[in-house]
Design a protein around this nucleic acid. Structure first.
Lengths: 108, 108
DNA sequence: TATAGCACTTTGTATGGCAAAGTTAATAAG
DNA sequence: CTTATTAACTTTGCCATACAAAGTGCTATA
């Protein structure tokens, strides 16, 4: 009979949202959680990611329904705004809760 | 002139210890941080990992110097004990601090 | 026309996780 | 003596993903 991992207060591996867990996206999501939205260039500077990488990471976040990507022209220059969605906010909060819950059982 | 990401209180991507960050190993390390040491079977049950995966994850932790793997025979059965090292304890604490620091700036 | 800025997209490489199957070593059961 | 069982691997193969680098398209400006 296969056994389930017993409840130790630690999260089950599968519970961790890997879309958010990936460091680059964790950083993007942290900024968005605070600012709600940010433009491409800003995120690029904050994260230190290259154009290509930032682009692919926000596309993944978009596919997960965590952000909305809005393209406009401002001052006749392209401006890409990345906007956190409600689902994205919730997912990030869940992730945060899970991590903190895990660390709670751990104090020296 | 290339720009450094400005200090927002969020960690730099490269600062995240990916050896620990990987969910499976995060779970292993959490247990070890509390228990200091644990045997193979126990960790396998707690994490729900397969033999092979658990084995390869603890090998990675060993290569990083975070655990020591001790093989003995008890009751005439092989017993593999995974013991957290000092370095492992420190690395985990650093990881935890970094994560919590990141979440600190984020409260609704 | 050439250049620069912004935001991609594509391509290639390297890594890494995971499942599955096979292996070894020791003992227990028949 | 043979087979099975337990514990713990190791190996193989697949697939996803991260990242760098290079090229593309669009707009505006010199």
């Amino acid at each position: 009979m296969p056994e389930e991992p017993s409840d130790t207060g630690f999260p089950i591996i599968d519970d961790i949202d890997r879309v958010i867990h990936e460091p680059a996206r964790l950083l993007i999501m942290s900024h968005l959680y605070v600012l709600d939205s940010a433009n491409f260039l800003f995120l690029k500077r904050q994260t230190g990611l290259s154009d290509g990488n930032l682009s692919s990471h926000i596309t993944k976040l978009e596919n997960a329904g965590y952000v909305e990507i809005i393209k406009k022209f401002v001052d006749r220059k392209p401006l890409t705004v990345i906007q956190l969605t409600k689902g994205g906010r919730e997912a990030f909060r869940d992730y945060q809760r899970q991590m903190q819950h895990m660390f709670e059982g751990i104090r020296d």
